[in-house]
Computed example of a mutant assay.
Amino acid sequence: MRALRRSARALVVLGVLATVALVAWGSLRGRPQDLPWTPLDLSQPIGAFTGRKLTALGEDFGACRALLDRAGVRYTALPPRDGGGQCGYDDAVRFTDGGARRISYAPAALGVACPVAAALAKWEWDVVQPAAERYLGSRVATIEHFGSYSCRRIYGRDAGNWSEHATADAVDIAGFRLADGRRVTVVRDWSGDGDARARRQAAFLRAVRDGACELFATVLSPDYNAAHRDHFHLDQASRGAMGWRACR
């Protein structure tokens, strides 16, 4: 027991030292996005605390909408929805065309909780479009999805934890349509089996998955399990200020 207590104290000390080092590093580099207490600004590059700040927007719908407004994202605030029990939302928005967000969604009129919308916008600008140009030589015109709000438990079970979809705090991304007409889907192109083109498409999918991990509390892909063989699950589950984050 004494050894365990010593180990626990050592981990706490290491954590404090790591935080101090991170703060000093962020200050010296002039990168406010790397500091936990600076306001979130979607125009800034992705930083060490961007993902946690995005998730924290679930506590303040007004602040989240103001953030979208400042970033030029066009949307409509959706009326609160009471789905009964653990289902429903009071902070959802629906993307509209135009503004700073250039990618459309199919099916159209995607409605998600505001923190998910903010993360999707940042994902588009800083992750999806750069990766598409790098690996595919074209920009993304449309993101295909399987939806957001669904009043159900995880995996649709009769018991157990409720899904983040039950509060519109999640979205399932299935594929991407490029400006040049090509289509890249998770179910068909994740493996990368085949020629150089197939490998580039798989590299693109992994790049956008990995980039999403910096912006969402949970990112699940075909690497996680067979249930996600055809989509990326992205959510903003609230797990506290320093809560664990999942990326698979």
Results as ranks from 00 to 15, higher is better:
Leu14Phe: 12
Leu22Gln: 12
Leu28Tyr: 02
Asp34Ser: 06
Leu35Gly: 06
Leu35Ser: 07
Trp37Gly: 02
Thr38Pro: 00
Leu42Ala: 12
Gln44Arg: 15
Arg52Asp: 14
Lys53Gln: 10
Lys53Cys: 05
Leu54Thr: 04
Ala63Arg: 13
Ala71Ile: 07
Arg74Ser: 09
Leu78Val: 14
Pro80Ile: 02
Asp82Phe: 02
Gly84His: 03
Gly85Ser: 04
Cys87Thr: 08
Gly88Leu: 03
Gly88Arg: 03
Arg94Ala: 15
Gly99Thr: 08
Gly99Gln: 11
Gly99Phe: 11
Cys114His: 05
Pro115Ser: 00
Ala119Trp: 07
Glu124Asp: 13
Trp125Tyr: 04
Asp126Gly: 09
Ala132Thr: 09
Glu133Arg: 15
Val140Lys: 04
Val140Leu: 07
Thr142Trp: 01
Cys151Val: 10
Arg152Tyr: 06
Arg153Trp: 11
Arg153Cys: 10
Asn161Arg: 15
Ser163Val: 05
Ala166Trp: 10
Asp169Thr: 09
Ala170Tyr: 07
Gly175Glu: 05
Arg177Trp: 04
Val184Phe: 03
Asp189Asn: 14
Asp193Lys: 09
Asp193Thr: 06
Ala198Asp: 11
Ala202Gly: 06
Ala203Lys: 08
Ala207Leu: 00
Val208Tyr: 10
Ala212Leu: 05
Thr218Ile: 09
Ser221Lys: 01
Pro222Trp: 01
Asp223Cys: 01
Ala227Lys: 02
Phe232Gln: 03
Ala237His: 11
Gly243Tyr: 09
